[in-house]
Simulated assay, not measured.
Amino acid sequence: MSDAPAAPVTENGVPPVAQEKVEEAPGFKVFAGNLAYTTTDEGLKAFFAPVASDILSAQVILRGTRSAGYGFVALATAEAAQKAVDTLNKTELDGRPVIIEIAKPSEQKDKEKKEKKAKRKPGRRGSKAVPGEVSEAEANGEASKTDGAAVPESDEAAKPKKKKKKSAVSRAF
Rank of each mutant, 00 (worst) to 15 (best):
M1R: 10
D3W: 08
D3I: 09
D3Q: 12
A6P: 00
A7Q: 01
A7S: 06
V9Q: 03
V9I: 14
V9W: 01
T10C: 03
E11S: 08
V14T: 06
P15C: 02
P15R: 02
A18E: 14
V22W: 13
E23R: 15
E24W: 07
G27D: 03
F28M: 12
K29L: 13
V30G: 04
A32I: 02
G33F: 03
G33S: 04
N34L: 06
L35V: 01
L35A: 00
Y37H: 12
T38A: 09
T39F: 01
D41H: 05
D41R: 02
D41S: 04
D41A: 02
L44M: 04
L44S: 01
K45G: 06
A46N: 08
F47K: 02
F47S: 00
F48R: 04
A49Y: 07
P50D: 03
A52L: 03
A52N: 05
S53L: 09
D54N: 08
V60W: 01
L62W: 02
R63K: 07
A68Q: 10
G71N: 05
V73Y: 03
T77E: 01
A78S: 14
A78M: 07
E79Y: 05
E79D: 14
E79N: 10
E79K: 13
A84V: 00
V85Y: 01
D86C: 05
D86V: 04
T87Y: 04
L88M: 05
N89D: 12
N89P: 02
N89A: 02
N89Y: 04
K90E: 13
K90V: 06
E92R: 07
L93P: 03
D94Y: 04
G95R: 01
G95V: 00
V98D: 00
I99Q: 08
I100D: 00
I102L: 15
A103N: 04
A103Y: 04
K104C: 06
S106G: 06
E107I: 09
Q108F: 10
E112H: 04
K113Q: 13
K113C: 08
K114P: 02
A118D: 13
K119M: 11
R120F: 07
R120T: 05
P122N: 08
P122D: 15
G123K: 05
R125K: 15
R125N: 15
G126S: 08
G126W: 12
S127W: 13
S127L: 15
K128P: 01
A129G: 07
V130W: 13
P131R: 02
V134M: 13
V134G: 07
S135I: 05
E136S: 11
E136T: 11
E138S: 02
A139G: 14
N140F: 07
E142P: 04
A143Q: 06
S144R: 10
S144G: 11
K145W: 07
K145Q: 14
T146H: 10
G148P: 05
S154H: 07
D155A: 11
A157P: 00
A158I: 11
A158F: 06
K159S: 09
P160E: 08
P160F: 09
K163R: 11
K164F: 04
S167M: 10
A168V: 14
S170K: 15
S170E: 15
R171Y: 12
R171K: 15
R171F: 11
A172C: 09
